[in-house]
């Protein structure tokens, strides 16, 4: 396996930056060409707390998937720390996702058959032995910090929505990521729980210096971030 120069032992030393240049994402159906993202140019700097806001169908989730390397653009260049992502094969991209990105989804996306602690530790298993700490201990620390340590061995369906989303954030944090991508993280939560989650994401940005990108359709949510990127019909406006 090729060693990834992108994976330094001390991620904080290298300023993290993701740059999108002339990004297009198109889908072709039988009778029409659907342009989901139309010439997106965007830079996200290390330590930023950014939101991508737009109505549903605007392409904001697709943009988030591209930032998180879950998907590839139809055209254009994505670079992370000045390295062209399109040059990486699936294996390398998977490793990048594992080490650099933490996802938080609207649907929480925990694996229902795994306990809370197993869900949180799973990225460390896929990261093999590349972490210097014990994933189980780190998972417990995170649960303690989020006030749900007593749920460590419970299955996700025994948890409330707010608790599940905190577990998902803990999972996103287990590999010490540079970037957290949160796709409508409050979409399935009531206001109170939603606010807790948003506070938590703010704290991670401020205290832990993690770059956070928040995707939302709610202006109130977007307001909490320093920078807002508005997207309509696949274009940044």
């Amino acid at each position: 396996m090729k060693t990834l120069k992108l994976l330094p032992d001390l991620p904080m030393v290298i300023p993290f930056m993701i740059r999108l240049q002339h990004i297009f994402k198109e889908y072709e159906t039988e009778d029409e060409k659907l342009i989901v993202l139309n010439d997106i140019n965007l830079e996200i700097k290390k330590g930023e707390f950014t939101s991508i806001i737009g109505p549903s169908g605007s392409g904001k989730s697709t943009l988030m998937h591209l930032l998180g390397m879950l998907d590839r653009p139809s055209r254009g260049k994505i670079s992370i720390n000045d390295k062209d992502v399109s040059k990486f094969d699936d294996n390398e991209i998977s490793k990048m996702r594992n080490r650099f990105v933490g996802f938080v989804f609207q649907q929480f996306n925990l694996i229902p058959k795994l306990s809370v602690i197993e869900n949180i530790s799973l990225p460390a298993i896929y990261g093999r032995t590349n972490v210097a700490y014990d994933p189980k201990n780190k998972a417990k620390e995170l649960l303690k910090r989020f006030g749900i340590l007593d749920k460590a061995n419970a299955l996700p369906n025994k948890l409330s929505g707010g608790q599940q989303q905190r577990v998902a954030i803990a999972r996103a944090l287990i590999m010490n990521p540079n970037l957290i991508l949160a796709d409508e993280p409050t979409g399935n939560l009531d206001t109170k729980n939603g606010n807790t989650i948003l506070d938590l994401l703010g704290e991670l940005n401020k205290k832990d210096k993690i770059t956070v990108v928040l995707v939302t359709h709610e202006a109130d949510v977007a307001k909490r971030t320093k920078r807002q990127i508005k997207i309509v019909d696949g274009r940044i406006i």
């Binding site: 998180g68 879950l70 699936d90 294996n91 998977s94 490793k95 996702r97 594992n98 080490r99 996802f103 996306n109 925990l110 694996i111 799973l122 990225p123 896929y126 990261g127 999972r171 590999m175």
Partner: peptide, 16 residues
């Protein structure tokens, strides 16, 4: 399928 998607998102490779 959905579970596979989650695993891939958190860093599982094709081989995993």
């Amino acid at each position: 399928t959905h579970e596979i998607g989650i695993r891939r998102a958190i860093g599982a490779t094709k081989s995993d």
